[in-house]
Amino acid sequence: MRTNTTPAPKQVPVINFACPTVQTGLTALIDRLAAAVAEVEKWAPVEDRLSLEFKQSAGPAPKVRGGVTRASKLIREGEPDLDLPSEDWFYHSRDAIEQGRANALAAADTREARAAVKERYAVLLADWDAQEAAYNSRMPRGLAHAKRMVQKAHRAWTAAEVAIVEYEPKTLTQAYELLAYAGMDGKRVFFTPGEEDLKTIMRNAAAALALQGMN
């Protein structure tokens, strides 16, 4: 007999990861991630404040002369031409110098040209390292400590994320917890796996399902 009664929707259990009833392997990893995030939130503002104070008092930051631009003429319709004189240009980071070196080596088509590139950029890198060492020698201890703490916290954050991605649930409950956590959303969710990470998580959860005879 047909009735107009609508079946009650199934209740989906809600997992409170902040206050777990049973300490599981996943919960321990989530706790590690939360602790790392807390350390970043503690030290990052300190580093930002001290870095700003240091930049305001330390003088010019390192920069290495990369070369000279060519003089050129800017032709503007209805207006006089504008002469642009040649001028020095500078590298403002070691990464930029290394990228310039890679580009120059890729463009060099002879052994002699590559040797010249290597020699030139060895000088530029040595110049940068000397300037940076002198600049950092003026850094106050508090800022150096804050930088170390932020870097340490970020490493712990990354390690915790990797451990969660590689976590292998053994029961249906653990598989559900893993999938539920990976799918969480919101401003205070700090675990944001990429596509390949999500695939790994789903494979690990599927393995747990198969282990329980649900394949």
Rank of each mutant, 00 (worst) to 15 (best):
A130F: 03
V123H: 10
G142E: 11
W157C: 02
D127W: 00
R114C: 04
R120E: 15
I164F: 04
R148M: 07
A159Q: 15
R111I: 13
V150Y: 00
A133W: 06
G142K: 07
E132K: 08
K118G: 03
R101C: 05
R111G: 14
A134S: 12
M139L: 05
P140Q: 01
I97T: 07
G100T: 07
D109W: 07
K118L: 15
L124E: 02
E161I: 01
A116M: 14
A102V: 08
A134T: 14
I164H: 02
A153G: 03
A106K: 14
A107L: 13
R155C: 00
Y135I: 05
H145R: 09
L124Y: 12
G100Y: 11
G142A: 13
H154L: 14
K147E: 13
D129A: 05
K118A: 10
A102M: 12
R138K: 15
G142D: 14
Q99T: 11
E132Y: 07
A133F: 04
K118N: 15
G100E: 05
M139D: 03
R111Y: 12
M149C: 06
W128V: 01
L125P: 01
D109T: 13
A160Q: 03
A159Y: 06
R141C: 02
L143Q: 04
W157Q: 11
A115Q: 15
E98Q: 10
Y135E: 05
Q99I: 12
P140W: 01
A102H: 09
P140K: 02
V162I: 15
H154V: 05
A102W: 04
K118V: 12
A126I: 04
Y135N: 04
L105T: 06
A130G: 09
A96V: 05
K147V: 10
R114A: 07
D109Q: 13
K147R: 14
V117A: 12
N103R: 15
L125K: 01
A146N: 02
T110R: 09
T110L: 11
A115P: 03
R141M: 09
A130E: 15
A156M: 08
A107N: 09
G142I: 06
K147M: 11
M149W: 03
Y121K: 04
Y121A: 03
K152T: 11
K147N: 10
K147T: 04
D129W: 01
A144V: 06
I97F: 01
R155A: 10
Y121H: 08
P140H: 04
V162M: 12
A144G: 08
P140T: 06
R111K: 13
R155V: 07
W157R: 14
E119N: 12
R155Q: 13
R120F: 06
R141T: 13
S137W: 05
A153L: 08
I97P: 00
E112W: 11
Y121M: 03
D109I: 13
E132G: 00
V162H: 14
